[in-house]
Design a protein around this nucleic acid. Structure first.
Lengths: 124, 124
DNA sequence: CAGGATCCAGTTAGATACTG
DNA sequence: CAGTATCTAACTGGATCCTG
């Protein structure tokens, strides 16, 4: 084997891998999976605190259903925080939580890796 | 904003983010998305070169349909290489390609991040 | 304004049986 | 042994309309 680093399975699934019962890697990917989580996180990271309808405008093609449900999931997972101001009309703002501080650089690396793999293909 | 690092959107989607057209991060996640990609990569990383039926035994609950199609996708994406020996009966072996060298540490980080986030929840 | 409710379509995954 | 083919089930995402 080529990889010197300790197996990520040792870190995550102990010796239950391949993921027979519980896999932290799998559950991590669920947090940011689905069609809209990444665009939402991306928008919030770019622009900071953002209102609902502003998000909707920025994220091309998202529907109310998906934006609302994705935000709720992200909030429940602790990645996004929702703040409501009871003005008239109501104002609701969303922002990344500090749990995302470590996530962003990792996504960064993943994106770079993806670009590299996509470009250097067809080598079989 | 809390994050000092350069936005991953600058690295990946340029200024087309949030992912209006093409997003390297999104496409990277597609490569390892779906229910079985991670378990397969995980098994291959743990044990190195592995035969088809051996994989099937190790990955709890996977069906032929899913194993075959996932392996084919991974192969097309350049993450796994397939080697066929025309003995009788046929022997086919799968292994990770060098494209995974960089991926494993990243997944490692993601898994750690996921564990941390999952444990430190309910802080809203 | 910021969503919720409802209904529908498409995609993804699984069961089962079969083949070179 | 290493898959394919077919059919079905489940889940994900979307359109539209509605509301405090």
């Amino acid at each position: 084997m080529i990889i010197e680093e300790k197996s990520y399975c040792e870190n995550s699934c102990a010796n239950k891998c391949p993921c027979k019962e519980y896999c932290p890697l799998g559950s991590a990917l669920k947090l940011i999976g689905g069609k809209w989580k990444i665009p939402i996180l991306c928008a919030l990271h770019q622009d900071g605190t953002t209102r609902y309808n502003e998000l909707k405008r920025k994220i091309n093609g998202i529907t109310n259903t998906m934006l609302a449900s994705s935000l709720k999931e992200l909030e429940n997972d602790g990645l996004v925080c929702r703040r409501q101001y009871d003005e008239m009309p109501v104002r609701v703002e969303y922002a990344l939580t500090s749990a995302c501080d470590d996530l962003i650089p990792i996504l960064n690396q993943l994106a770079k890796w993806g670009s590299k793999v996509n470009s250097g293909e067809g080598s079989k």
